[in-house]
Design a protein around this nucleic acid. Structure first.
Ligand code: FES
Ligand code: FES
Lengths: 146, 146
DNA sequence: TTAATTTAAGACAAAACAGTCTGATATAAA
DNA sequence: TTTATATCAGACTGTTTTGTCTTAAATTAA
């Protein structure tokens, strides 16, 4: 069970961060990405295609083909990716599931949740995937960029 | 789409908080709870039964039957309910979906997420459902306890 | 030109989640 | 005792999410 992002979004964030570590101009295939990040291959394909249509990636077919970021890694934030995949419903939804979340009729944890939500929001907008790539200490990322 | 709790858990939290506002000894029927909180009736029935089996509620059949808290409202925290329904996976899972979450091989947002998670954890353990009931400013709760 | 490789696209399947329905059982009151 | 009302239990259905498969189209290189 995922926490706040869908599986699809988690995979997207992992993948884009991986691409952020590659050399300028280098293309990564679905096969490599799926193998190193242990993501179901065809599921990943759909996710990358979606990110391509959204304009975050460029793709190339044929041998030597693959995916790469369409813009500098520092111009893409977590927020952009989350928005593209999951949407931003979390930003104004009640954590207890009530239909409305507003200060007018707050639920019992509205204020505390508001702080958490703001911190989360800050985390998403303040970090670009270039920083993400550098900060990632997972072993599967070590090989990238070689 | 729910944020961090499942629909079932959201409904459970809403319901238990509602029960926390009722007078000592008063029993609330599934029908009333479902109507005022706008929760599907049979789905709610299963949730309340589950909470009963877990020991948080007592139930009574027949006319004048219904549900009530099995213990003082101040002895039940959000944490108890979340644990009973969703489990505590959120407390040690990676927000980016990696298999392991640990300081040994942290993902790029491990530290920031750690703070958010701690705040969330604090919110769950520090608030009991008696306080919750009092703090709830939703119109559907106004009728309770009359 | 042909063969190999890679993405594109969408149908399909499996699993998880949410919600529904029915019959049984217990209880209170007429 | 009978009737009405409520929970109990579990099977069932529908929806969303997640994952799989197949074919087509594009591209590279032999
Ligand atoms: S009303 Fe519940 S979080 Fe705002
Ligand atoms: S490793 Fe990702 S949150 Fe800890």
């Amino acid at each position: 069970m995922s926490i706040i992002f869908s599986r699809e979004c988690e995979y997207a964030l992992q993948s884009v961060t991986y691409l952020a570590r590659t050399k300028q101009g280098e293309k990564i295939s679905i096969r490599e990405l799926a193998r190193t990040l242990k993501i179901p291959r065809h599921f990943l394909a759909k996710i990358l295609q979606r990110l391509t249509r959204k304009g975050f990636l460029i793709s190339a077919k044929g041998p030597t083909g693959g995916f790469a970021l369409s813009m500098p890694a520092k111009d893409i934030t977590l927020f952009h990716i989350v928005d593209a995949i999951d949407g931003l419903a979390f930003a104004n939804s009640c954590v207890l599931g009530f239909r409305e979340c507003s200060g007018k009729h707050p639920c019992a944890v509205h204020d505390q949740w508001g702080e958490i939500r703001d911190t989360l929001y800050e985390m998403l907008v303040s970090r670009n995937v270039s920083q993400m790539g550098a900060a990632m200490k997972k072993p599967e990322y070590e090989a990238a960029g070689n």
